[in-house]
């Protein structure tokens, strides 16, 4: 059993959860993920690690309550436990001193863009962060992102905070302003990552995205997480989850992620019903 040391709301429906997992905390590097189960009948879900404290033996996850499992995870009280967490999985981000590096997080993707921004800064890059959200209330990790950035930008779709527009527009403006950009990391919803790839492609800017295909074991066995990269089959759990954005077949990823859509809805609705039944606990 793995104890939840703390669970704090960051924004509506988004929580930062710290979990006791000493082996993982000791090993975690930017870009890696864990597989966890919330209860004994739970599914194995992949979540990218937002940070770790090797000394305290804890890792932190930033979780958006989307489906049954993530909602349940967010509802667990501090001090309670989850049965399983395994990691750190996946190949760590390739970090070097690229020169000027832009780390872009869309929505809860910022949770993953953040540790990589930290690593990029440490490696000596001039770090620019673009932290995008739909609206002001959904902006997360603003302070943290700022603290590792040489230039930090917030964008909101509705203009309620920061730059009015999408992260792609902000990135395009930076490129248009003549800034020499050597590396872009983009993490967020598939359409956002796909759009970023198209922004940087004409300029040949090395761009990396972190993919979120369906996974079951997450350790290199089941093959559920296969993605098409440069017309080849790759497995996000061991070959990724980060890939060259200009070679990823995003449409295929989006299609394949829809396979269990109706089942997920059933499960989530059943879960909501259960939560209401146990609402008094």
């Amino acid at each position: 059993m793995y104890r939840i040391v703390s669970s704090k709301p960051l924004a509506e429906n988004i929580k930062k959860i710290e979990i006791e997992a000493p082996r993982i905390a000791k090993k975690q590097q930017a870009g890696q993920f864990v597989m966890l189960r919330v209860n004994p009948t739970g599914e194995r879900i992949p979540l990218t690690i937002a940070g770790s404290d090797a000394e305290a033996g804890t890792i932190s996850l930033i979780v958006q309550g989307m489906g049954k499992s993530t909602k349940e995870l967010n509802s667990l009280a501090e001090g309670s436990s989850i049965p399983d967490i395994v990691g750190p999985l996946g190949t760590p981000s390739h970090i070097e001193n690229f020169g000027t590096a832009v780390s872009i997080g869309g929505g809860v993707g910022t949770a993953i863009a953040y540790p990589t921004a930290v690593a990029l800064k440490k490696a000596g890059n001039h770090v620019i962060t673009i932290n995008g959200a739909r609206t002001k209330e959904l902006v997360i990790l603003e302070k943290e992102m700022k603290s590792v950035s040489d230039e930090a930008y917030i964008t909101t779709d509705d203009g309620s905070y920061g730059y009015h527009g999408f992260v792609t527009q902000k990135l395009q403006e930076l490129i248009d302003s003549g800034k020499k950009i050597d590396f872009v990391l983009a993490i967020g919803p598939i359409p956002m990552m796909k759009a970023i790839a198209e922004v940087t492609r004409p300029y040949g800017i090395h761009t990396v995205v972190s993919l979120n295909p369906i996974m079951v074991d997450g350790t290199g066995m089941c093959g559920g997480c296969r993605v098409t990269v440069n017309n080849e089959t790759k497995f996000a759990c061991v070959d990724g989850p980060e890939f060259d954005a200009h070679q990823v077949d995003f449409s295929n990823l989006a299609d394949r992620n829809r396979i269990y859509q109706s089942e997920e809805k059933t499960s989530s609705e059943a879960g909501d019903h259960q939560c209401r039944l146990h609402g008094s606990h």
Binding site: T41, E43, S69, V216, C222, G223, E263, E264, S267
Partner: peptide, 24 residues
């Protein structure tokens, strides 16, 4: 792949979805 199909059913007990397993 067969590995994924079988893992969902055997290890994750997807045949009991959604009542007793969260894995479809």
């Amino acid at each position: 792949a067969a590995n994924e199909f079988l893992t969902r059913v055997n290890l994750m007990k997807a045949y009991d979805f959604p009542a007793k397993s969260d894995t479809p």
